[in-house]
Every structure is written in structure tokens, then in C-alpha cells.
Design a protein around this nucleic acid. Structure first.
Lengths: 92, 92
DNA sequence: GCATTATTTAGAATTTCATCTAAATATCAG
DNA sequence: CTGATATTTAGATGAAATTCTAAATAATGC
């Protein structure tokens, strides 16, 4: 929740790529991690940042945790940008 | 320029507020700074981050430097977000 | 219960960032 | 040229972020 968390979450290239990877459906943390040359712990950290920003939701199924996009939060961002373009938005 | 710089520039609340302040026209660095309780040096730093990201352009007129919004860069951001929503964008 | 697999948490190392003070640069008015 | 004003640059500091290794948690299969 909140602009700050969303913008911060989006400001890291790894996290943006994670979102991109999730475009075509939910994936486990392990599957997501296999796209990167980072430890699973690091990926887990990025996923928690994305989760706290509301950009992904997690779904525990058995041994695995599936992550899935939640794009509704991005409406705030596009709204803020629209506000910069002459609309009267009061958001900072 | 490029995504990374733009997202990073937008991830700071002071910089987002600067953009907001510039919605209704160009302002000098000093005028911008007067909205904040930070030193001019700090504001100057934020302005340089925004300038390097292409989000503002500066215009030196006499003793002052006027800063002005340059919103075209934001098209990349909205395009990236649109790409997350099922469009086939290759951008990371 | 024990070993294995999937993921997270804790703690530390390194880097990056926001901010400050002080000094530098540039422009204008006498 | 000198002084005043506007802004930037340089260097320092503390806080936050990214990443790692190692340990902890949770679920499955024998």
C-alpha cells in the first residue's frame, strides 16, 4: 500500500523482471529464481518487497509457494502520472 | 536515461513532489527549494537526478535556472505498465 | 520419525542514497 | 572590481538497500 512502497518496489530491475516473468501465469519462488543468478534467499527478499507493495500475491500449495501478479496497484501509479499531465490530482 | 534512471528518480517522495510543484509552469531552483525544509544543495541534487532521468529540463535565464517538466519520458513507464497487462512488451 | 525439497529468516558485508556543511562558480548591480 | 544573490560541486556521514551464507521452518515421501 502507498505510493512509496510501490515506486520503491518498481525501482529495482530484478523486481521489474520478476513481474515480467509472471505475466503469463503464477510461478513458484523456485521457478522465478531459476531465471536469475542470485541465491534463493535474495529472490525471496525481492518477492517479499513485491508482496508488501501489493504487486504480487502468494498462494501456498503444498510444498511450493506460487506467486502471481496483482496489477490493480499499478492503477495508482498510472493515476499519479495522469495527474502530472494537467489533471488535478492532490497526491504527492 | 532509460527505465532504471526514470524509476529510480520517481522512487523518492521529494522528487515526486518537485514534479508535482512544476505542474503549473517552470520555476527556479530557489522557488522549488522554498517548498521544502532542506538545503539548497540537497534540492540541487534532486533536480540533477530528475534532469538526468529526462523528467525535467533546465533553462538558464540570467541569474536563475528555471526548471520545467518534461513528461514525454513517462510514456516509457506507462508503456511498460501496459506491457505487464498482457501486451507483448519485451522491455525489462 | 528421518531425510529431502522449497522457501524464508537472521545476520553480516558492501554498495547506494539522501542529506548536510563548506567551498566553488556564475551573474548581476553599483 | 566588489559585494550580493543563485545554484552547483565536493566531500563527509548516517541510513537504507542489495546480496550473500548459514540456519530455521514447513511439507512430502519412505
Amino acid at each position: 500500500m502507498g505510493f512509496q512502497e510501490t515506486f520503491k518496489a518498481l525501482s529495482d530491475p530484478t523486481r521489474r523482471e520478476i513481474l515480467h516473468i509472471l505475466r503469463d501465469g503464477a510461478k513458484t519462488a523456485g521457478e522465478i529464481g531459476s531465471h536469475f543468478s542470485m541465491t534463493g534467499a535474495t529472490i525471496s527478499h525481492h518477492l517479499s518487497v513485491l508482496r508488501e507493495a501489493g504487486l504480487v500475491i502468494d498462494d501456498k500449495r503444498g510444498k511450493c509457494i506460487y506467486y502471481e501478479l496483482n496489477l490493480s496497484v499499478l492503477d495508482e501509479i498510472t493515476g499519479w502520472i495522469a495527474g502530472l499531465r494537467g489533471e488535478s490530482s492532490d497526491e504527492k
